[in-house]
Amino acid sequence: MKKREKRWVALAAVFALVFGIAPAANAMHIMEGYLPVQFCAIWGVICVPFLAAGFFSIRKTINEHRKTMILLAMSGAFIFVISSLKIPSVTGSCSHMTGTGLGALLFGPSAVSILGIIVLLFQAILLAHGGLTTLGANTFSMAIAGPFVSYGIYWILKRCRVNRRVSIFLAAALGDLFTYCVTSFQLAICYPSEAGGIGASLVKFLGVFAPTQIPLAVIEGLITVVIMIGLESYARPELRELRFVEGDR
C-alpha cells in the first residue's frame, strides 16, 4: 500500500471510530428491517475502512500483478456460486456457505470485503435475502470477520508447518463458522433477553445458527481444498506471483 492510500485507510478508520463508538451503542444474513436503525448505521460505518483498504488492495493487485486478475475473478465468482447454494443440514433447516475463504487466502482478507459486498448487494436487492438496511452488518460478518479469521488461521498454521491442505480446510471451514457466530453476536446485542441479557440471547442465537452451519462449514472447507488443488495444478504461475506457493514445484 502506498503512503497516500494508507492515509486514506487511516482516515476512514478514524471516521468509523468516531461515528461507531460515540453514540454509546445500545446495536448470514440478518433479515431486512430486523436491526434497529442505529445499529444498521454503526455496522455500515465500521465496514468503511475495510472496504477502503480492500479497494486499494485490489487496485494494487490489478496494477502490479495483472496476471492474477483471473484468480481474482474466480474468487469472486466462487463466492457467487457458493453463497447461492442452500444446503440442508442436520438440524432440519437449510443454510448456505460464504465462500469467502478462497479469496482471503489468495488475496488477503481486505480484498474479499469488496467481493463479498457485491454478492450481498445482489442478494439484498433481487432476492430479499439479507437486506439493504442490514447490508453493513452482513458485510461485516460475511465479508470482513470471516475472511480475517480464515486468513489468520492459515497464517498461524503455515508458521506451525501444518500440511497445507489441512490448513486450507481449517481456514475456510472456521472462517465460515465464525461468520455465523458474528451474526449471532450482532443479533444478540440488539435483542438482549430480559432474563440473561446479551449473553443469554447470544447462546440462543448461536443455538439456531451454529449447529446448522457446522456441516456446511465442513463442506466449504472441502470445496475450497478441491478448488485449490485445481489451481495448484493449472495456475501455478499465478499462485507463485501471489506468493501463495513458493518458488519451484
Binding site: I30, M31, Y34, P88, G92, S93, C94, S95, F205, V208
Partner: peptide, 22 residues
C-alpha cells in the same frame, strides 16, 4: 454431507436458518 440430512431427517421442513433467526 449435503444429502445425508435429507434422508436422515424425513419430513423435516428445511426452511432457511435466516427464518429460524426471526
Amino acid at each position: 454431507i449435503a444429502l445425508i440430512p435429507l434422508f436422515a431427517l424425513k419430513g423435516a421442513e428445511f426452511g432457511g436458518s435466516d427464518d429460524a433467526g426471526s
